[in-house]
Amino acid sequence: MQKPFISLFIPTLDGGGAERVMLHLAEGFAVRGFDVDLVVAKAEGAYLSKIPKTIRLVNLDAKSPVLLFKTLALKQYLKQEQPNFLISTLDIFSSAMWAKRLAGVSTQVVMCVQTNLSQQFQDRHGMLMQKLKWSVVQHFYPWADAIVTASAGVARDLEQNAKIPMQEMTVIHNPVVTSDFVEKSQETVTHPWFAEGQPPVLLGVGRIVKQKSFTTLVQALALVRQHCPARLMILGDVDGREPEVKPELDGLIETFGLQDDVLFPGFVENPYAYMAKADVFVLSSIYEGFGNVVAEAIATGTPVVSTDCESGPAEILNQGQYGKLVPVGDHEAMAEAIVSTLNNPMDAAVLRVRSQAFTIDCIVQQYLDVLNGLQAIQPSTQPSTVGVI
Protein backbone atom coordinates (compact mmCIF):
# COMPACT_ATOMS: atom_id res chain seq x y z
CA MET A 1 0.00 0.00 0.00
CA GLN A 2 1.04 3.57 -0.64
CA LYS A 3 2.27 5.84 2.10
CA PRO A 4 -0.30 8.24 3.60
CA PHE A 5 -0.83 11.77 2.43
CA ILE A 6 0.26 14.24 5.17
CA SER A 7 -0.73 17.91 5.39
CA LEU A 8 0.74 20.52 7.73
CA PHE A 9 -1.27 23.64 8.59
CA ILE A 10 0.14 26.96 9.84
CA PRO A 11 -1.09 30.59 9.57
CA THR A 12 1.89 32.02 7.67
CA LEU A 13 5.57 31.37 7.00
CA ASP A 14 6.94 34.24 9.09
CA GLY A 15 10.51 33.86 10.31
CA GLY A 16 9.67 32.30 13.68
CA GLY A 17 10.52 29.02 15.34
CA ALA A 18 7.16 27.31 14.81
CA GLU A 19 7.22 28.14 11.11
CA ARG A 20 10.72 26.70 10.79
CA VAL A 21 9.65 23.54 12.60
CA MET A 22 6.73 22.93 10.24
CA LEU A 23 8.95 23.51 7.22
CA HIS A 24 11.50 21.03 8.57
CA LEU A 25 8.82 18.44 9.33
CA ALA A 26 7.37 18.81 5.85
CA GLU A 27 10.83 18.37 4.38
CA GLY A 28 11.46 15.30 6.54
CA PHE A 29 8.21 13.63 5.48
CA ALA A 30 8.91 14.39 1.82
CA VAL A 31 12.42 12.91 2.03
CA ARG A 32 10.81 9.68 3.23
CA GLY A 33 8.57 9.60 0.18
CA PHE A 34 5.28 10.90 1.59
CA ASP A 35 2.93 13.16 -0.35
CA VAL A 36 3.15 16.41 1.63
CA ASP A 37 1.10 19.61 1.54
CA LEU A 38 2.12 22.71 3.48
CA VAL A 39 -1.15 24.59 3.97
CA VAL A 40 -1.04 28.26 4.98
CA ALA A 41 -3.82 30.72 5.77
CA LYS A 42 -1.75 33.40 4.03
CA ALA A 43 1.21 32.77 1.73
CA GLU A 44 3.55 35.32 3.25
CA GLY A 45 6.67 35.41 5.40
CA ALA A 46 10.42 35.00 5.34
CA TYR A 47 10.32 31.23 4.74
CA LEU A 48 8.06 31.39 1.68
CA SER A 49 11.04 31.12 -0.64
CA LYS A 50 12.56 28.21 1.31
CA ILE A 51 9.99 25.53 0.47
CA PRO A 52 11.56 22.56 -1.37
CA LYS A 53 10.01 21.53 -4.68
CA THR A 54 9.05 18.19 -3.13
CA ILE A 55 6.45 19.99 -0.96
CA ARG A 56 3.23 21.43 -2.36
CA LEU A 57 2.30 24.83 -0.96
CA VAL A 58 -1.44 25.41 -0.61
CA ASN A 59 -2.46 29.03 -0.04
CA LEU A 60 -5.90 29.37 1.56
CA ASP A 61 -5.65 33.13 1.03
CA ALA A 62 -7.88 33.77 4.06
CA LYS A 63 -9.47 37.20 4.20
CA SER A 64 -10.50 39.16 7.29
CA PRO A 65 -11.80 38.01 9.70
CA VAL A 66 -8.99 35.50 9.27
CA LEU A 67 -10.21 33.03 11.93
CA LEU A 68 -13.53 32.52 10.15
CA PHE A 69 -12.25 32.48 6.60
CA LYS A 70 -9.23 30.29 7.23
CA THR A 71 -11.49 27.73 8.95
CA LEU A 72 -13.94 27.70 6.03
CA ALA A 73 -11.13 27.55 3.48
CA LEU A 74 -9.45 24.73 5.38
CA LYS A 75 -12.78 22.88 5.47
CA GLN A 76 -12.98 23.11 1.69
CA TYR A 77 -9.39 21.94 1.35
CA LEU A 78 -9.99 18.91 3.59
CA LYS A 79 -13.20 18.00 1.78
CA GLN A 80 -11.46 18.18 -1.58
CA GLU A 81 -8.06 16.65 -0.79
CA GLN A 82 -8.85 14.39 2.20
CA PRO A 83 -5.30 13.91 3.51
CA ASN A 84 -4.81 11.02 5.89
CA PHE A 85 -3.31 13.33 8.51
CA LEU A 86 -3.31 17.05 9.25
CA ILE A 87 -0.68 18.42 11.65
CA SER A 88 -1.69 21.88 12.88
CA THR A 89 0.23 24.43 14.93
CA LEU A 90 -0.29 28.02 16.14
CA ASP A 91 -3.97 27.07 16.12
CA ILE A 92 -5.33 28.29 19.44
CA PHE A 93 -8.97 28.33 18.30
CA SER A 94 -8.73 24.82 16.82
CA SER A 95 -9.50 25.78 13.22
CA ALA A 96 -8.19 22.39 12.14
CA MET A 97 -10.73 20.50 14.25
CA TRP A 98 -13.65 22.73 13.25
CA ALA A 99 -12.68 22.37 9.60
CA LYS A 100 -12.52 18.59 9.90
CA ARG A 101 -15.97 18.40 11.49
CA LEU A 102 -17.52 20.77 8.96
CA ALA A 103 -15.95 18.85 6.08
CA GLY A 104 -17.10 15.50 7.43
CA VAL A 105 -13.83 13.77 6.50
CA SER A 106 -11.83 11.02 8.17
CA THR A 107 -8.59 13.02 8.22
CA GLN A 108 -6.93 12.58 11.59
CA VAL A 109 -5.77 15.81 13.22
CA VAL A 110 -2.64 16.22 15.32
CA MET A 111 -2.53 19.46 17.31
CA CYS A 112 1.08 20.55 17.80
CA VAL A 113 1.67 23.00 20.66
CA GLN A 114 4.90 24.91 20.17
CA THR A 115 4.93 27.38 23.05
CA ASN A 116 4.15 27.79 26.74
CA LEU A 117 0.57 29.00 26.35
CA SER A 118 0.09 30.43 29.84
CA GLN A 119 3.16 32.63 29.40
CA GLN A 120 2.12 33.65 25.89
CA PHE A 121 -1.43 34.51 26.95
CA GLN A 122 -0.17 36.49 29.95
CA ASP A 123 2.31 38.32 27.74
CA ARG A 124 -0.26 39.38 25.14
CA HIS A 125 -3.68 39.57 26.79
CA GLY A 126 -5.65 40.80 29.77
CA MET A 127 -7.20 38.43 32.28
CA LEU A 128 -10.54 38.12 30.48
CA MET A 129 -8.96 37.13 27.15
CA GLN A 130 -6.60 34.73 28.93
CA LYS A 131 -9.58 32.93 30.48
CA LEU A 132 -11.38 32.84 27.14
CA LYS A 133 -8.41 31.31 25.35
CA TRP A 134 -7.82 28.72 28.04
CA SER A 135 -11.50 27.80 27.87
CA VAL A 136 -11.21 27.30 24.11
CA VAL A 137 -8.09 25.15 24.50
CA GLN A 138 -9.66 23.10 27.29
CA HIS A 139 -12.85 22.38 25.34
CA PHE A 140 -11.58 21.92 21.79
CA TYR A 141 -8.02 20.56 21.92
CA PRO A 142 -9.29 17.19 23.23
CA TRP A 143 -11.22 16.89 19.95
CA ALA A 144 -7.88 16.25 18.25
CA ASP A 145 -6.85 12.70 17.48
CA ALA A 146 -3.46 13.41 19.08
CA ILE A 147 -1.73 16.29 20.86
CA VAL A 148 2.02 16.76 20.50
CA THR A 149 3.95 19.28 22.60
CA ALA A 150 7.41 20.62 21.87
CA SER A 151 8.60 20.08 25.44
CA ALA A 152 7.57 18.45 28.69
CA GLY A 153 7.16 21.93 30.15
CA VAL A 154 4.56 22.81 27.54
CA ALA A 155 2.71 19.58 28.34
CA ARG A 156 2.73 20.33 32.06
CA ASP A 157 1.37 23.80 31.34
CA LEU A 158 -1.51 22.31 29.32
CA GLU A 159 -2.25 19.80 32.05
CA GLN A 160 -2.35 22.48 34.73
CA ASN A 161 -4.34 25.10 32.85
CA ALA A 162 -6.44 23.16 30.33
CA LYS A 163 -6.91 20.01 32.45
CA ILE A 164 -5.59 17.80 29.64
CA PRO A 165 -3.87 14.79 31.26
CA MET A 166 -0.17 14.38 30.51
CA GLN A 167 -0.78 10.81 29.35
CA GLU A 168 -3.00 12.12 26.55
CA MET A 169 -0.10 14.14 25.08
CA THR A 170 3.14 13.12 23.41
CA VAL A 171 6.30 15.17 23.94
CA ILE A 172 8.36 15.45 20.76
CA HIS A 173 11.16 17.96 20.66
CA ASN A 174 11.62 20.13 17.60
CA PRO A 175 13.62 19.14 14.51
CA VAL A 176 16.39 21.70 14.08
CA VAL A 177 19.40 19.82 12.68
CA THR A 178 18.85 19.59 8.94
CA SER A 179 20.73 17.48 6.40
CA ASP A 180 22.63 20.58 5.24
CA PHE A 181 23.16 21.99 8.72
CA VAL A 182 26.92 21.39 8.83
CA GLU A 183 27.37 22.91 5.39
CA LYS A 184 25.40 26.01 6.35
CA SER A 185 27.24 26.41 9.65
CA GLN A 186 30.56 26.41 7.78
CA GLU A 187 29.60 29.22 5.41
CA THR A 188 31.73 32.36 5.55
CA VAL A 189 30.64 35.36 7.60
CA THR A 190 32.51 38.42 6.44
CA HIS A 191 31.60 40.74 9.31
CA PRO A 192 34.78 42.24 10.82
CA TRP A 193 33.74 41.32 14.37
CA PHE A 194 34.53 37.69 13.53
CA ALA A 195 38.03 38.42 12.25
CA GLU A 196 40.98 36.92 14.10
CA GLY A 197 42.12 38.93 17.11
CA GLN A 198 38.76 40.65 17.67
CA PRO A 199 37.01 40.62 21.09
CA PRO A 200 34.68 37.70 21.87
CA VAL A 201 31.21 37.90 20.30
CA LEU A 202 28.07 37.02 22.24
CA LEU A 203 25.15 36.09 20.01
CA GLY A 204 21.41 36.31 20.55
CA VAL A 205 18.82 35.25 17.98
CA GLY A 206 15.12 36.03 17.94
CA ARG A 207 12.44 38.56 17.11
CA ILE A 208 12.87 41.85 18.94
CA VAL A 209 10.01 41.34 21.39
CA LYS A 210 9.56 41.48 25.16
CA GLN A 211 9.47 37.69 25.37
CA LYS A 212 13.13 37.48 24.34
CA SER A 213 14.17 39.93 27.08
CA PHE A 214 17.17 41.27 25.21
CA THR A 215 17.28 44.01 27.84
CA THR A 216 18.58 41.39 30.27
CA LEU A 217 21.25 40.42 27.75
CA VAL A 218 22.35 44.04 27.21
CA GLN A 219 22.58 44.56 30.98
CA ALA A 220 24.61 41.36 31.26
CA LEU A 221 26.97 42.56 28.54
CA ALA A 222 27.64 45.75 30.48
CA LEU A 223 28.75 43.64 33.47
CA VAL A 224 30.75 41.20 31.35
CA ARG A 225 32.77 44.08 29.95
CA GLN A 226 33.89 44.96 33.46
CA HIS A 227 35.79 41.64 33.43
CA CYS A 228 36.79 41.20 29.78
CA PRO A 229 36.23 42.68 26.31
CA ALA A 230 33.07 41.46 24.57
CA ARG A 231 30.56 42.45 21.90
CA LEU A 232 26.94 41.50 21.35
CA MET A 233 25.18 40.73 18.07
CA ILE A 234 21.40 40.11 17.98
CA LEU A 235 19.89 38.55 14.85
CA GLY A 236 16.18 39.09 14.28
CA ASP A 237 13.56 41.47 12.97
CA VAL A 238 11.56 44.00 14.95
CA ASP A 239 8.04 42.63 15.48
CA GLY A 240 5.40 45.03 14.21
CA ARG A 241 3.14 44.12 17.13
CA GLU A 242 5.73 45.41 19.62
CA PRO A 243 7.47 48.34 17.91
CA GLU A 244 8.32 49.96 21.23
CA VAL A 245 10.81 47.24 22.22
CA LYS A 246 13.65 48.30 19.90
CA PRO A 247 13.70 51.98 21.01
CA GLU A 248 13.77 50.80 24.63
CA LEU A 249 16.76 48.60 23.82
CA ASP A 250 18.49 51.45 22.01
CA GLY A 251 18.00 53.69 25.05
CA LEU A 252 19.49 51.09 27.37
CA ILE A 253 22.46 50.58 25.06
CA GLU A 254 23.09 54.32 25.04
CA THR A 255 22.82 54.48 28.83
CA PHE A 256 25.61 51.91 29.15
CA GLY A 257 27.67 53.48 26.37
CA LEU A 258 27.54 50.32 24.27
CA GLN A 259 26.60 51.86 20.93
CA ASP A 260 29.77 50.56 19.24
CA ASP A 261 29.54 47.11 20.79
CA VAL A 262 25.93 45.99 20.15
CA LEU A 263 24.73 45.26 16.63
CA PHE A 264 21.31 44.41 15.17
CA PRO A 265 21.80 42.98 11.64
CA GLY A 266 18.11 42.03 11.42
CA PHE A 267 16.80 38.73 10.07
CA VAL A 268 19.48 36.63 8.37
CA GLU A 269 18.72 33.62 6.19
CA ASN A 270 21.54 31.54 7.66
CA PRO A 271 21.98 32.18 11.39
CA TYR A 272 23.92 28.92 11.79
CA ALA A 273 27.08 30.43 10.30
CA TYR A 274 26.91 33.22 12.88
CA MET A 275 26.29 30.72 15.68
CA ALA A 276 29.32 28.68 14.66
CA LYS A 277 31.58 31.73 14.83
CA ALA A 278 30.21 33.25 18.04
CA ASP A 279 32.07 32.63 21.28
CA VAL A 280 28.93 32.18 23.38
CA PHE A 281 25.31 31.84 22.35
CA VAL A 282 22.94 33.44 24.89
CA LEU A 283 19.19 32.89 25.26
CA SER A 284 17.69 35.54 27.55
CA SER A 285 13.99 34.66 27.06
CA ILE A 286 11.26 35.01 29.65
CA TYR A 287 9.60 31.92 28.18
CA GLU A 288 9.87 29.54 25.25
CA GLY A 289 8.04 26.48 24.01
CA PHE A 290 11.23 24.64 23.18
CA GLY A 291 14.01 27.07 22.32
CA ASN A 292 15.04 26.00 18.82
CA VAL A 293 18.00 28.35 18.77
CA VAL A 294 19.55 26.65 21.81
CA ALA A 295 19.51 23.28 20.04
CA GLU A 296 20.84 24.92 16.88
CA ALA A 297 23.68 26.60 18.77
CA ILE A 298 24.90 23.39 20.38
CA ALA A 299 24.69 21.69 16.98
CA THR A 300 27.33 24.17 15.76
CA GLY A 301 29.47 23.32 18.80
CA THR A 302 29.08 26.80 20.33
CA PRO A 303 28.71 26.93 24.13
CA VAL A 304 25.38 28.17 25.48
CA VAL A 305 24.17 30.27 28.39
CA SER A 306 20.39 30.27 28.77
CA THR A 307 17.70 31.40 31.13
CA ASP A 308 16.02 28.49 32.89
CA CYS A 309 12.69 29.59 31.46
CA GLU A 310 9.50 27.72 30.83
CA SER A 311 9.82 25.69 28.70
CA GLY A 312 12.48 23.78 26.80
CA PRO A 313 16.02 25.08 27.36
CA ALA A 314 16.59 22.99 30.48
CA GLU A 315 15.42 19.92 28.57
CA ILE A 316 17.76 20.66 25.66
CA LEU A 317 20.70 21.28 28.00
CA ASN A 318 19.73 18.35 30.26
CA GLN A 319 19.31 20.51 33.35
CA GLY A 320 22.62 22.28 32.83
CA GLN A 321 24.80 19.37 31.71
CA TYR A 322 25.35 20.89 28.25
CA GLY A 323 25.25 24.59 29.09
CA LYS A 324 24.75 27.01 31.94
CA LEU A 325 21.23 27.87 33.12
CA VAL A 326 20.45 31.12 34.97
CA PRO A 327 17.27 32.55 36.50
CA VAL A 328 14.96 34.54 34.21
CA GLY A 329 15.69 38.28 34.31
CA ASP A 330 18.85 37.92 36.42
CA HIS A 331 21.46 39.86 34.41
CA GLU A 332 24.08 39.47 37.13
CA ALA A 333 23.84 35.66 37.06
CA MET A 334 23.83 35.77 33.28
CA ALA A 335 26.99 37.89 33.18
CA GLU A 336 28.73 35.55 35.62
CA ALA A 337 27.76 32.52 33.51
CA ILE A 338 28.97 34.22 30.32
CA VAL A 339 32.36 35.10 31.82
CA SER A 340 32.73 31.57 33.17
CA THR A 341 31.84 30.10 29.77
CA LEU A 342 34.27 32.38 27.94
CA ASN A 343 37.02 31.23 30.28
CA ASN A 344 36.09 27.54 30.18
CA PRO A 345 34.01 26.71 27.09
CA MET A 346 32.39 23.30 26.83
CA ASP A 347 33.91 20.83 24.38
CA ALA A 348 32.31 21.39 20.95
CA ALA A 349 32.30 17.67 20.14
CA VAL A 350 30.22 16.90 23.24
CA LEU A 351 27.67 19.55 22.25
CA ARG A 352 27.40 18.21 18.69
CA VAL A 353 26.75 14.69 19.96
CA ARG A 354 23.94 16.01 22.15
CA SER A 355 22.38 17.82 19.19
CA GLN A 356 21.83 14.52 17.35
CA ALA A 357 18.68 14.11 19.45
CA PHE A 358 17.21 17.02 17.46
CA THR A 359 17.89 15.92 13.88
CA ILE A 360 15.03 16.01 11.37
CA ASP A 361 15.28 12.26 10.79
CA CYS A 362 15.08 11.48 14.52
CA ILE A 363 12.11 13.78 15.14
CA VAL A 364 10.20 12.81 11.99
CA GLN A 365 10.37 9.19 13.11
CA GLN A 366 8.79 10.16 16.42
CA TYR A 367 5.95 11.90 14.59
CA LEU A 368 5.49 8.85 12.37
CA ASP A 369 5.22 6.72 15.50
CA VAL A 370 2.33 8.94 16.61
CA LEU A 371 0.65 8.74 13.19
CA ASN A 372 1.10 4.98 13.01
CA GLY A 373 -0.54 4.73 16.41
CA LEU A 374 -3.63 6.57 15.15
CA GLN A 375 -4.51 4.36 12.21
CA ALA A 376 -3.15 1.81 9.81
CA ILE A 377 -1.47 3.09 6.67
CA GLN A 378 -4.09 3.94 4.05
CA PRO A 379 -3.61 4.55 0.31
CA SER A 380 -3.05 8.22 -0.40
CA THR A 381 -5.26 10.18 -2.74
CA GLN A 382 -3.47 12.05 -5.49
CA PRO A 383 -3.56 15.78 -4.65
CA SER A 384 -5.13 18.08 -7.22
CA THR A 385 -3.78 21.44 -8.31
CA VAL A 386 -6.60 23.64 -7.00
CA GLY A 387 -5.46 26.38 -4.65
CA VAL A 388 -1.77 25.85 -5.31
CA ILE A 389 0.56 28.79 -5.85
Rank of each mutant, 00 (worst) to 15 (best):
T178F: 02
E269Q: 14
H139Q: 15
S49E: 13
A152S: 13
S355G: 04
K324L: 14
E44F: 08
L132K: 08
G33R: 08
L38A: 11
L67W: 13
F5C: 09
P327K: 02
D123Q: 14
L374E: 03
M169E: 05
D180V: 04
P65Q: 11
A295N: 06
E196I: 11
H173K: 10
M1G: 13
E254A: 12
V326P: 04
D61F: 11
W193A: 13
A99H: 04
P229I: 06
M97E: 15
S384R: 08
M233L: 09
V245T: 10
T216D: 14
W143Y: 06
S284Y: 09
F69P: 01
E269C: 09
V201I: 14
P200C: 06
R231Y: 03
Y274S: 04
P313A: 01
L67I: 15
I87M: 05
A30S: 14
L132P: 03
A162G: 11
K133P: 00
L258P: 13
Q356L: 08
V224A: 01
P192A: 12
T12M: 10
G236N: 02
Q119F: 09
E187V: 02
M129Y: 05
V305Q: 03
P327C: 10
K75P: 00
P229Y: 04
I55Q: 11
Q119C: 15
T359F: 00
L221P: 09
G17L: 01
F93W: 13
D279E: 12
N161S: 09
E315G: 09
G240K: 12
E336R: 11
Y322Q: 03
N84G: 15
E248W: 08
S285E: 05
T178K: 05
S179L: 07
V39P: 03
F121K: 00
A62M: 01
K277M: 04
L283P: 00
D180T: 06
L23G: 09
V364H: 00
S380L: 07
Y272S: 03
P4S: 12
V326H: 02
Q120S: 14
L235A: 08
A144S: 15
V245Q: 07
T188V: 15
G251H: 08
T12E: 13
T216M: 07
R101D: 11
V136D: 05
Q375Y: 07
T385E: 14
D369I: 06
E269Y: 06
Q365D: 14
A335P: 13
L57E: 08
V304E: 08
D261W: 04
T381S: 10
